[in-house]
Design a protein around this nucleic acid. Structure first.
Lengths: 330, 330
DNA sequence: ATAGCGAACTGAAACGTTTCATCCCGATGC
DNA sequence: GCATCGGGATGAAACGTTTCAGTTCGCTAT
């Protein structure tokens, strides 16, 4: 591998000069700069980021750890974060914890070893050891899609309780009194909060609510849940899913079994991913501003990693909104 | 930041011993090891990967650069690659070129600066400068979802010509004689090949084929293409899309306009992403073994980065298959 | 003529590891 | 009692940068 000293020798200048040509081209004379650049090109020199970073003490990358990249919601979050990072001259490396607490821990320690500039984290759970251990590394981080006391850490999230309530109220208004809630793992705060919101909306309405917890927030789990719901008697007249992926799965099961949606069963999803509108029956869904979340979180993080005075932590909470489509049309 | 020498001082041992505790615990006595580990825990020492890598000369990560992470097909490819990498004790950092040649170039040079162990690349185009420039870095790489002469570089792909033919033949067999092809940017080999396959299948059948090139392979572009197709007279009786995302968009436009699918217009997609089966009308699609592609590519790459004798390049080509669903049912 | 100045460049230290030759020392064999 | 051995620890070199205190040198102002 060709290094800076090969370039220096070949160009007949010192190592420091080559470094200057690369990093502060203005302090070196035109003639020298041209000569060095020519040699760099000739030798195909590429500077070694690890040496650079070792010297600098910190890197130019942000870590982003999300629950599931198979969920377009998080892909959009990632896009937003990348945009913001790019504007600040930083790179983002995106990883998936797959909702596994140990995968999360392993990626966090990888980030710590890389001396990442900061971390955007959509945590599986905030009270477990992995996060606490990471805290000790003193690397700044911002929680994504998850609230936290603002005196401890910044966070950007959407009010999931309100989201659950929006869905619940909408189902009440459309006349449903036997509702099933297909929820993801309750370790996830999102899932707990959405349930609480739903329950609050339904409270005192005399509605019969049954909750079913599935192991993963994906289409396959939704399909399975849908099949199980079909076997129930009496069958619920509406299904609220913690997630659009689950909702798409449930929908598939219904359509496959010849059950009319929304005629016999209404369905509400969550996230309003792009595919929700293109589904067998376009899905009513609780929309979250995914891209904005990613962007805001990255901005907050970048502000906290700045060398200037620390801006203090903030907890940004966005409001979700309900997008009504065919799947709950009366 | 606490370094190895802080640990050494505190534990009353040499730097080398601490390093041994971390990397080769067996060569150090039980007593010393325990003492050092205690200090590591107490001080919260995390080793600095950049220093480690600087010394080692190469990193433990593979770079993966795909065309679009918004496309679930590539998410699956990434999953496959990560699986394989994890088994080899390597990490994968995944990036998206968004089909922009300059974004691609920028990520490739980032990979080169990181001294990544190897790169999995789904290139925008193989004949442009970005790739040639990267070649000079001597970092091993494998092409993903793209063929190349096996004497130059390894590749893992699916036969897109066959895929296009499968779609074309199926539409012929289902009686269509006026077909529209909604294609992505023709700079992408995938798009060119699929068109060639389609044209080959239709050749001599007296079929009227019109091709429309859209700027991006996403749902929005599909929707737009669908709207334009609706305005045509006579309207095509079938639409083949270079991509499931496009197909979903076209489908949305059709359904939105009250055009019956497959009654008035049949639709065929490509990739068979999970959402294809859950669409408004379940999509007929050309399936590609996404996860297997990622896995195989990573395996090939890892073999090439091994220190042993070089295994030589290979070009793996998988066969696509047609999944027939409602959208082309007669 | 000389002091002073600034532009351009140099040389070496420092960053935090890993590795390897070396050293120490107690035990073993004769 | 002495040479040998080997487990265990040490110290320093090396990795490729960046940075910064110096050095050189041609110019300008006095």
């Amino acid at each position: 591998m060709v290094g800076i000293k090969d370039v220096a020798r070949r160009a007949g200048v010192s190592i420091g000069t080559v470094s200057n040509v690369v990093n502060r081209p203005d302090v070196v004379s035109d003639a020298t700069r041209a000569k060095v650049l020519a040699v760099i090109d000739e030798l195909g020199y590429v500077r070694d980021e690890s040496a650079r970073q070792l010297r600098a003490g910190r890197s130019r990358v942000l870590g982003l750890l999300v629950l599931d990249l198979g969920n377009p919601f998080f892909v959009d979050v990632a896009r937003g974060a990348e945009e913001a990072a790019r504007e600040a001259g930083l790179n983002v490396v995106t990883c998936t914890s797959s909702q596994q607490i140990d995968t999360e821990a392993s990626y966090l320690s990888m980030f710590a070893e890389q001396r990442v500039r900061g971390v955007l984290l959509s945590p599986v759970t905030t009270d477990a050891g992995a996060l606490c251990a990471f805290r000790r590394s003193r690397i700044p981080f911002v929680l994504v899609d998850r609230t936290a006391p603002a005196d401890e850490v910044s966070s950007v999230s959407v009010d999931d309780v309100v989201g659950g309530m929006l869905a619940g109220r909408h189902l009440l208004e459309t006349g449903h009194r036997r509702i099933a809630f297909v929820n993801g793992p309750e370790v996830l705060a999102q899932c707990r909060d959405r349930r609480h919101g739903l329950e609050a909306a339904l409270a005192g309405s005399g509605t019969e609510l049954s909750t079913m917890e599935v192991p993963a927030l994906d289409v396959a789990s939704g399909r399975e849940a849908g099949t199980r719901l079909l076997a129930r008697t009496p069958r619920p007249t509406a299904v609220f899913c913690a997630n659009d992926l689950l909702a798409l799965g449930v929908l598939q099961a219904m359509v496959g079994a010849g059950v009319a949606v929304p005629g016999e069963v209404a369905i509400v999803g969550y996230d309003d991913i792009e595919f929700a509108g293109a589904a067998a029956v376009p899905l009513t869904s609780v929309r979250q501003p995914a891209r904005l979340i990613g962007r805001t979180a990255a901005d907050l993080l970048i502000a906290e990693t700045g060398d200037g005075e620390q801006p203090g932590h903030r907890a940004v909470v966005y409001e979700p909104s309900l997008v009504i489509r065919e799947s709950t049309r009366r």
